[in-house]
Design a binder for these strands. Structure first.
Lengths: 206, 206
DNA sequence: ACCGCTTTGTGCACGAGTTCACAAAGGGTC
DNA sequence: GACCCTTTGTGAACTCGTGCACAAAGCGGT
């Protein structure tokens, strides 16, 4: 389920605030979902709540972390050190929760050797070596669209089975490889669509 | 539909390549969906295809642009000029297709006055003035989580009804406001989940 | 030990989105 | 002009996720 990470974040926030137990209603409100949906989601993991009381925050954090596979550690390689790659390298979310950036890689020799967020940028020719040495399981593609499919093929051929793609194109991968896509311009266009819809409704009502 | 922007991008790619007509099968493959789904999506916009031939690329580009509201122009304000805000300001996708970055805003006085991608960073106290002067309709939140809800409230109170949120928290907004969320760590955790699932299957099979 | 209050876990119905399969409709060819 | 081949548009069955409503279950006070 794609909502578990949200629950996990909210729960860790509660844990930091010293809250020991939460009801499904509190948790649902904080996570922006309905209470019934939340209970059904959690029930799929097992019965970890106490009727009449709620859920134990720490225990639930542990269980969700376990289900998500966050008890293990994953090495990540970021390919493409443009504006976006830069931002990703400095992103604090990688360090926490078991993700480690193994290396930054770029095709531009002028960028190789540069140090970003404590990591040296290496040339993309070394991609295969890096992946094998660090047992990288997740690849992040932050290259221009023209290079993305090629980079993706190389990642996959080295055994990477999870890809996070920021390039604006649909990647072609074998079935066993998971790709998640983050696309700015698509998000903007969806917002534009809703803006227009709202404008039309307002116009029609006036 | 959230897939229209993908179709649009693929179609503009075809148009640039000088292709005049496409079949649903070609387009579906390039967009990573099934042919039936694509035809049903397009049929919701009207009957713009020719049986036995396919779809006229240019005409379809125009129709999808129109439905998405991209024939109008939208002003965007980016709040928070950290690593991510920096990357967003330099993102080429804003300029194309009717989106204009009206201003960059940050709460840190040390950053105010800095010029990024041809735009001067202004202090967040001016947020209300900027929104009214430029008729901003879309707000992008690239601040730390602690400031995000406050920024969002200010955007909404100025009449912004579309928000793109990069901060790792669930924003609380009135019903008529659309929020889209982009969250790195959630994407990573989902990939981790699938990684673990694949690892367990492989282990179980061996 | 019992009773009532709170909260979980879940059976059921409903609706949205997806897939299949085929009829309708063009274009090309003879 | 008639026939055949290709491709669209869509009706119908199906799946999946969602929300409601309620029974089961624990806790605390008396």
């Amino acid at each position: 389920m794609a909502r578990l990470p949200v629950y996990l974040r909210v729960l860790t926030g509660f844990a930091d605030g010293g809250i020991a137990t939460v009801s499904s209603e509190q948790l649902a409100q904080a996570a922006g979902v309905g209470p019934a949906k939340l209970r059904k989601d959690l029930s799929h993991l097992g019965s970890y709540g106490t009727r009449g009381v709620g859920y134990d925050v720490d225990y639930l954090v542990y269980q969700i972390s376990r289900v998500l596979g966050l008890t293990q550690h994953y090495s990540v390689v970021i390919v493409g050190v443009g504006n976006l790659g830069h931002a990703l390298a400095g992103y604090a979310g990688f360090g926490t929760r078991g993700f480690r950036v193994a290396a930054l890689v770029d095709a531009d020799p002028a960028r190789v050797g540069e140090t970003i967020a404590g990591l040296e940028v290496r040339h993309s020719d070394e991609l295969e070596t890096i992946i094998k040495d660090h047992e990288v399981s997740i690849g992040v593609i932050a290259t221009p669209a023209s290079a993305a499919q090629d980079v993706c093929d190389r990642l996959v051929s080295c055994g990477v089975t999870s890809v996070l793609n920021f390039a604006p194109l649909v990647l072609n991968v074998p079935d066993q490889v998971d790709v998640r896509k983050v696309d700015l311009s698509i998000e903007l266009q969806i917002l534009a669509f809703h803006e227009q819809r709202k404008a039309l409704v307002a116009q029609g009502a006036s």
